[in-house]
Amino acid sequence: MSEIHKDYTGAKLGMWLFLFTEVLLFGGLFVLYSTYLYKYPQDFHTGGKQLDVFIGTLNTVVLLLSSFFVALGITYIQRGEKKLAIRYTLLTIIMAFGFLINKSIEWSAKFHHGIYPNSEHLLEMPHGEQIFFGLYFVMTGLHGIHVIIGAVVMGVMVWLMKKDNINKDDFVKLENAGLYWHLVDLIWIFLFPLFYLVL
């Protein structure tokens, strides 16, 4: 123990500070969402009805499961069960892909109906719905980018575990990657009701 000079608390503090920046990055968009919801409650309602609640719910479940898997991965690496830790981290990556596939099915359905930024069909809709879909594409798009980054980070973690760079005594990297992944989940927990269930 005493031979490791790494500052675990410092590393975690740094990661949490970074997570705060992510929260406030999305925070700017939540400022916009809340004010526009206040301005156009009826249009947001009609907009929300056009989104697929099933796919939205499915993706929520997928992300919750992935968060669970990350947590298990960290538990197993702490217990020194490397194989299981790798397996659950890989499962997380698979969940990330599942989420993205769902998302792309959903988006392409929207595109197919002529709903994409600046599309003619969208421009004919009421102002509030245009804003609703604008926010929808920007916020879920930015979230999707975070899912991709998270999946890549998890891939690196698997590689590091295989190299034994992350192990029973030194796992703060996996913990921090996990924190990032949970944050991505956290943001979706809010995006889901705000877009798919808005009434």
Partner: peptide
């Protein structure tokens, strides 16, 4: 505070490229 600037300037970029209209 800086992340809020980050998203703000990103939105200008998105508006210019995609014309979302926020």
């Amino acid at each position: 505070a800086t992340p809020v600037l980050g998203i703000t300037v990103l939105l200008i970029f998105v508006e210019r490229v995609l014309g979302v209209g926020l």
